[in-house]
């Protein structure tokens, strides 16, 4: 009897451990992605509040590597280009961080600007480096120079289906990329023809997403009063998915929430 119980216990323990390992593996993957609400409904927001803040970097600032422009030098090499995975300002302000609400289920709709996302390939560099694209909305790739690019979006890395990879030949000034129905990412976009060109796209279901600018600043406006989880994502510093920041927004009020990020291990 005792032995049986002991065996049962052992088996149970093993199963439990197994499950924990499985779950952990899964979490590891989820940790570098954005978190979205299960559903989102739009409504008019008239008494919304504002969340603002500054994202700063902590630790030794990695040197921005100068990129090797090994092709189409006349156009692409006009100005020096640097790896933009960590862009830090004079007082450690961190650019290109996504700051967003993880769990908002009701709020405003996307505005006209958000519904026209564009990435410019001027000078053989993707601008912006991090682009927010609403689900169901088409991204436009601009190309004003007579240079051929290919737009390679790595959806499969985020289990969002097959990758997109389309050529934008030197005559196509504008190439529209099909919309994605489900939120996900951020996913990388690359140009294989110019191997140094890399950027990120986040496909999002609601408009409460901001990307920090040179000053590390972000603003989320028209947030319906309530308490939310405030999340961030940065390509080299990771996310706060494990410990999201709680913020409480009051009608017409402004909440300040700064973040300090370190390089992810």
């Amino acid at each position: 009897m005792k032995i049986k119980m002991f065996t049962a216990f052992l088996v149970l323990l093993a199963c439990g451990l197994g499950l924990i390992v499985l779950a952990d593996n899964h979490e590891e993957e989820e940790n570098n992605k954005l978190v979205f609400p299960k559903a989102y409904t739009t409504m008019k927001v008239s008494d919304g509040g504002k969340i603002t803040g500054v994202v700063k970097f902590e630790g030794e600032v990695p040197k921005m590597k100068k990129l090797d422009i090994n092709k189409d030098k006349v156009v692409c090499g006009k100005t020096d280009k640097y790896d933009e995975s960590v862009v830090v300002g004079e007082s450690m302000e961190l650019k290109n961080t996504i700051v967003y609400l993880m769990d908002i289920t009701k709020g405003k709709d996307f505005d006209a600007k958000a519904n026209k996302p564009e990435i410019d390939q001027e000078g053989c560099k993707f601008t912006p480096h991090v682009q927010i694209v609403p689900v169901g909305v088409r991204l436009t790739m601009l190309n004003n120079a007579p240079i051929t690019h290919n737009v390679h979006i790595f959806l499969n890395d985020a289990d969002m289906g097959q990758d997109i990879n389309k050529q934008q030949n030197r005559m196509l000034k504008k190439l529209r990329i099909k919309s994605i129905a489900e939120a996900g990412g951020p996913v990388e976009v690359k140009c294989d023809i110019h191997s140094w060109m890399k950027a990120w796209i986040a496909y999002v279901p609601h408009p409460y997403f901001a990307v920090t600018d040179e000053k590390g600043e972000f603003t989320l406006e028209d947030v319906p009063p309530g308490t939310y989880k405030l999340g961030y994502w940065h390509e080299a510093c990771g996310t706060n998915n494990k410990e999201p920041q709680a913020v409480t927004v009051t009608a017409g009020g402004e909440v300040k929430q700064d973040f300090t990020l370190k390089l992810a291990e």
Partner: peptide
Amino acid sequence: GGIAGSPMPAFEGDTFY
């Protein structure tokens, strides 16, 4: 159709001029 997994892109209608 392109060669998925490789850098070779797809040349569909709208990639033509």
